[in-house]
């Protein structure tokens, strides 16, 4: 019966695993709702910000901000990468990193250096192993990320863009499409890509207080910050969705494993009983 006991312990341990995955699944299911609410709450600001930035980009002609004009030669590029703090969320982070690595390899082939700012523990751990230039990091944003937690890392990148040490800035995060789908996304932040909505034919200008340059700088900085913040929230919702799906499939697999192990266990038990009976019968016949 030694085999049977081993199988029984194995069944018990798989059952425990299943309990854990189910608990994680339910936790994520409730957190995803909160994350989506956060996303919704921050949307008015993002929309208003986009409008204002759009107005600014097309209204002003007297002063060209460096954030708006693209540079001809690209010698060094910056990436802001948003990842999760915890694992057990399927291929969410690795899909994003894989996409990013392909880009980094392309840049390296062109002899362009890459600066990286990592948000979230997973990106920190991943990118410190690589031969990239990690210039800033933030982690443990929690369930309710605050914009204060992101100001520092964003400022590093904006400063080095203004100083001319990077010529392009890209944001990498997981876009929350729906619960089943999260899309690894790379968005160019700087120079601000010219979009159609920004280019309508209106000829007017603002009254600036105190002056165009400083107001523009301020508005564009806030605009970038709001984009990064919005992406962080998207990534958070994606994390919970991915974890929910991953835990569900892990739970299903555990159930399958339990079923097949139970079958084996019963067979072993049956075989042992049969053997015992035949031994007894054999013994009785010998007497």
């Amino acid at each position: 019966m030694a085999g049977a006991r081993e199988i029984r312990t194995k069944i018990k341990s798989v059952a425990n695993t299943r309990k854990v995955t189910r608990a994680l699944e339910m936790v994520s299911a409730s957190k995803i709702r909160k994350a989506q609410e956060l996303m919704r709450a921050s949307r008015p600001y993002a929309r208003a910000m986009r409008q204002v930035a759009g107005h600014v980009a097309r209204a002003n002609t007297e002063f060209k901000h460096p954030f708006l004009s693209s540079r001809e030669s690209v010698k060094r590029v910056g990436y802001i990468i948003i990842s999760t703090d915890r694992g057990l969320c399927g291929g969410l982070n690795s899909n994003l990193f894989r996409k990013l690595l392909a880009e980094i390899r392309d840049w390296n082939e062109k002899n362009v250096e890459v600066d990286i700012v990592a948000i979230g523990t997973k990106a920190n751990v991943f990118f410190r192993r690589l031969k990239v230039n990690l210039v800033g990091s933030a982690s443990h944003l929690g369930e309710k990320p605050k914009i204060e937690q992101l100001i520092g890392v964003i400022k590093i990148m904006l400063d080095s863009y203004s100083a001319g040490s990077i010529d392009r800035l890209t944001l990498a995060y997981n876009d929350f499409v729906n619960t089943m789908t999260q899309k690894p996304t790379l968005d160019q932040l700087l120079p601000l890509p010219p979009s159609d909505s920004l280019a309508t034919a209106h000829d007017w200008d603002y009254l600036y207080e105190p002056d165009a340059e400083s107001v523009l700088e301020h508005v564009l900085t806030r605009y970038i910050e709001s984009l990064v913040y919005q992406a962080t929230l998207e990534n958070l919702a994606s994390e919970h969705a991915a974890r929910m799906v991953a835990m569900k499939s892990a739970g299903d697999n555990a159930k399958k494993a339990i079923d097949s192990l139970t079958l084996v266990y019963n067979k072993v038990r049956q075989a042992a009983i049969t053997q015992e009976i035949s031994e007894i019968v054999g013994g009785a016949a010998a007497v």
Binding site: V52, A118, L134, V135, S137, A138, V153, K155, I156
Partner: peptide, 26 residues
């Protein structure tokens, strides 16, 4: 467009420095 955080140049700079130190420690 209201800032929720209290912002000042010095505070922003401090935040940037913290983020950099984080990376260096890593």
């Amino acid at each position: 467009l209201a800032d929720t955080a209290i912002r000042a140049k010095d505070l922003d700079e401090a935040a940037a420095r913290r983020a950099k130190e984080n990376a260096e420690r890593l």
